[in-house]
Amino acid sequence: MRMLKRPGFIASIVLILIYLVIGIAGQEGHLLSIIGNAMDTMMYIGWALALAVIMSYAGYVSFGHAVFVGIGAWMTAVTIESIMPSHPFTISMFIVALLLGAGVAALVAYAVGWVVLRLRGAYFAIATIGLDYVVLYLAIYTLSRAGISPPLLFRNLSLTVQSFYWMHFTVFVITLLVVYYIKASRFGFGLAAIREDEEAAEVMGVDTFKYKLMAFTLSALIAGMWGVPLAFRHAKFDPQDVFSLLNSVIMIVENTVGGLGTFLGPIVGAYIYYGLYWSLLTKIAQASFVVLGPLIVIIIALVPEGLVGWLREKFPRLRKALE
């Protein structure tokens, strides 16, 4: 019960309420424009929190995390085109896609994690990049075997922006609650112990491998869920797009900027990234990396604990509020 009075939980509830209000208010009129931005921010927060479970809480940087988002999108394509072909869109289609996307992503993570989680640091990072490429080219190969040249365009499901919004919102609520529970539970403390000193954690009786495997699987599960609304929204499954390492880059930037080891860090990081995205990316596109790149370098070299971490350190009074 104590968990429910903590600032992280309160922040989650406030966020959920805000997005609920936006969803209801944005049904019509010029408020519609907010809905697009709200969907984007929800997605970026979701991505950041998905990676945070393994990167920020357990200290294992996964560079190929986009692979799970991609698997989610792939499973959505399978749902729409193979499992429920020629159905009009219903909620059940979304639920099937969600279960399938999250399930397959978690399964892949569990199987692969069994191998790669024995590796430390950079080896783990590179193994995840390798995994991303394996699944990407497998997807391309599978599609072309089926006589489809990527991207696979979905049929017109005549969805509205509102229905996209509620898809995002559903996944968003699940993400916030699950990730907060992970962070605040005993399991989360175990992960923190692994992040700080894996050997010591092992000595203290934490089953580090099991903990890491659970964290990796949960992280993949959440990332897999986020592939589903993305695919619906893009109305297609484009392997080169969803498996793009740039998506992994976004997740890593959000976590790094916001601050590792905190619940609020990735959320703050996501808002910062989104601001950068709209103020830079839509204007100068890839050239915006000229700004993003140095930002990472500066933060790593001078403020390695990230924005939230720095605030916690600078203002000890805020420590309780900034979880």
Binding site: I35, G36, H234, K236, D241, L246, L281, T282, Q286
Partner: peptide, 21 residues
Amino acid sequence: YYDDASSANNEPSIVQKLVTQ
């Protein structure tokens, strides 16, 4: 016009921005 950086990720947002904003 907006630069979409040749990425499909950006299309829905940009189109929506053009229409609604």
